[in-house]
Simulated assay, not measured.
Amino acid sequence: MKKLLNTVYVTTEGASLRKDGENLVAEVDGAERARVPLHMVGSLVVFGAIFISPALIGACAAAGITLVLLDRVGRFQARIEGPVAGNVLLRRAQYRASDAPEDIVRGLVMGKVSNQRAVLMRALREYGGDLASEQRAAIAMVTKRMARILRRVALADEHIEALRGAEGEAAQLYFSVFDALVRSPDPQLRFRGRSRRPPLDPINALLSFLYTLLTHDCRSAAESLGLDPAVGFLHRDRPGRPSLALDLMEELRPVLADRLALSLINRRQLRAQDFEARDGGAVLLTEEGRKTVLTAWQERKKEERRHPFLEETAPLGLVPYLQAQLLARHLRGDLDAYPPWFWK
């Protein structure tokens, strides 16, 4: 099943990728380093200056394998894919729903805020005794305020801007205590508030990198079902922005990305030397740091959880596809509402 196939990541600059028969072959300095059958590849993501043969590009397009080009630090550059196949009736339903998206946005916001709150409550249970009293009090206060936001979103008939405001309020509360969850001995690995484009500290660099990987998976999930990844509900339409992929990502970020970032830092799999500062203040992962994160990301996606709505066990890497399927069923009228994914 295509959605379960692997994403191949290539991070070694100067590598060459070519097609040999029905295989993807990676070479470094003329020596073959890896060979993967194309039928086992779901998508190909390359970082930095890597040669890709025209024959391989054509084979990927013909086989429905998406090729994503990122720069050496993980910023998106381009996406190459074959002819787009999709259900025009589903897309028309998506466009109509985007004009009055309150019900879908309500589900997305509830899923995101609930999962952010669950991350904080899990942290209190796992190492609450190691936290200073003021840190425990601050986290407990934030979880209570987030519970009130959830009740307000669930019960009130709020306009789209009010729902977006509730999501922003919850995110501000969540990140205001995120540093207390970081248990690294390295003084450089502290979280001083969310910063993007560029990230200004190692924690933000790690979060941004993981969010890029998750966005790619969510976009692939939307496109696999024939949904338009550019037309979202929570995120406003903007040229070049995959708004629907960003929507699908929101409820999954706390569990798939934030929890993984904390695990890598707190288990000391990433240390201060795995990040580098650039001119202008940007902080980025080193090549070795990226490899560590990519390995952990692939392992994380293999972990299985029970889906609260479907009541079936599935790998975490499959959750974006399941949520995209549920969204499509709601748009078709098979479900009364979009059911968010709640982490327990």
Rank of each mutant, 00 (worst) to 15 (best):
A138F: 09
A296N: 07
L108Y: 08
Q116F: 09
V182D: 03
S176R: 03
V46H: 06
R18L: 12
P320I: 04
T66Q: 11
R259Y: 06
L260V: 02
R152N: 13
T295A: 14
P339H: 03
L69W: 02
D217H: 12
F51M: 15
R33I: 09
L331T: 05
Y321I: 08
A61W: 04
Q77G: 10
E134G: 12
L120Y: 03
D179E: 09
W341V: 10
P229A: 08
P54Y: 06
L124E: 00
A166I: 05
L335Q: 00
R197C: 01
A170V: 08
R106W: 02
P198H: 04
K291D: 11
L284K: 12
S224F: 03
R145I: 08
N204D: 07
G21W: 07
P229C: 03
F342E: 12
D334R: 09
L284W: 15
Y321R: 09
F342R: 15
F233M: 00
S195F: 07
R290N: 03
L200C: 09
A61F: 05
D201Q: 08
S43A: 10
G168E: 10
L294Q: 02
R236T: 11
A15K: 02
W297G: 00
A314W: 10
A282N: 05
L294A: 06
G333K: 01
A205D: 05
Q94N: 01
T212A: 01
V46M: 07
F209M: 01
G129P: 02
I203A: 07
A55N: 13
E158G: 13
A261Y: 00
R125S: 11
R75T: 03
Q116N: 09
A277G: 10
G317H: 02
K302A: 11
R329W: 10
F309W: 14
L256S: 01
L67D: 04
I265K: 09
D157E: 11
W297H: 09
M110G: 08
E287S: 15
A140K: 14
E169L: 07
V41Y: 05
V142Q: 04
W343A: 12
S243T: 05
L326V: 01
G107W: 05
